[in-house]
């Protein structure tokens, strides 16, 4: 680990300036991803700017929804009664991620910005375009179990590991930013990028952009929502695939729905084709499956030393069908 300076400014704008002015500086949230990467040599910043106590650690009512300060810890967000009642998928996503200790540390701002768990990305002795642009992608033809089937490129096939981000994508949350040029907002679904030929860039944020809060919209259907994570062990494991979904039902008819996938793409995958396929339909297993198939029509599984990840297509299809069965109560 290379040495670095530690700074603890007292205002958010100071923090933004300190990072914006220094290409080698980064924000430090709960540190659960960044400190890991410092030790691995994946991140080699010259300065850490601690923002945990600069951004709000409060959850407040706003426009019928909730505004979550970036400093709110994952465990506190999951435990908030308003979140549990109005946005159960958010609480479930959080509680299915990491461990109790990590959730006590991880912040709302840091969680969506955690980086991929691709084993080659984390191992500085192997080529990786995300870590070292132009060096190649070791995952292609390698260990692919946790890699993408949607939206990947020849430069990178990594997935985004955050569970919370999948739920926030489904909800179409709003990211509140403070940048060197002031405040702005970005729709959560626009925050993360597909890899294209710039896999080193996970998000649309510029250097120095600080997440100050995340806004959850006024979305009554989110009360009927869930987050289903499928993984290789019962706890403390990243998703093979996951589904965040909310449904607005009128009898058996699906008036509206929100669906996002995790574990299958470089970003939390907003399943708009599936949503479109379901809107106005009568709830039923055939319709659910057709929606999954519509979304996965372009899926491109990987071949690898582990037998590849084509299993994610039926797995995700079945998981989505199961989730929709559960949310609608329709089993046929």
């Amino acid at each position: 680990m290379k040495p670095f300076a530690y700074q603890a400014p007292t205002t958010a704008s100071d923090a933004v300036r300190q990072v914006a002015d220094d290409p080698d500086a980064v924000f430090l949230g709960g540190g659960t991803n960044l400190v890991d990467h410092l030790k691995l040599g994946v991140a080699r910043p010259g300065a850490l700017v601690d923002v945990t106590s600069l951004t709000s650690a409060e959850i407040t009512e706003r426009d019928g929804g909730l505004l979550i300060g970036a400093g709110v810890r994952n465990s506190d967000l999951a435990a908030d009664p308003r979140v549990r009642e109005r946005y159960p998928l958010v609480a479930q996503a959080l509680l299915s991620g990491a461990s109790g200790q990590l959730r006590n540390m991880a912040t709302t701002g840091g969680n969506p910005l955690q980086r991929t768990r691709c084993v080659y990305f984390q191992d500085v002795t192997t080529p990786c375009n995300k870590r070292e642009p132009g060096s190649g992608c070791s995952a292609i033809g390698g260990y692919t179990r946790y890699h993408a089937i949607l939206g990947a490129s020849e430069h990178c096939v990594a997935t985004h590991p955050s569970d919370l981000a999948v739920a926030l994508t489904a909800l179409d949350a709003t990211v509140h930013l403070l940048g060197p040029d002031g405040e702005r907002t970005v729709a959560f679904g626009q925050l993360h990028r597909l890899p294209g030929d710039r896999p080193d860039k996970d998000t649309v944020l510029d250097h120095g952009d600080l997440i100050t809060a995340i806004g959850l919209p006024d979305l009554p259907m989110a009360r009927r929502s869930t987050y289903r994570k499928v993984r290789d062990r019962a706890s403390y494991a990243f998703a093979l695939v996951s589904v965040a979904a909310a449904v607005d039902l009128d009898g058996d008819a699906i008036r509206d729905t929100r669906i996002a996938f995790g574990g299958v793409a470089h970003k939390p995958w907003c399943a708009t084709r599936a949503e479109d396929a379901l809107r106005g339909q009568t709830a039923g297993v055939d319709a659910f499956r057709a929606a999954a198939e519509a979304e996965l029509a372009d899926a491109a599984p990987l071949e690898g030393i582990d037998g590849g990840n084509a299993f994610k297509i039926p797995l995700l299809t079945r998981t989505l069908v199961a989730v929709l069965r559960e949310l609608t109560g329709v089993n046929r």
């Binding site: 084993v119 191992d123 002795t125 192997t126 070791s138 260990y143 062990r233 403390y236 494991a237 030393i305």
Partner: peptide, 25 residues
């Protein structure tokens, strides 16, 4: 332990990727 023959090492070489049973298992 996933041995990547191209490199010659186990690529899931930590306790997040090499899964051992947790309490919940």
């Amino acid at each position: 332990s996933v041995m990547d023959p191209r490199f010659g090492h186990v690529v899931n070489h930590d306790l997040a990727e090499y899964h051992v049973a947790t309490n919940a298992d």
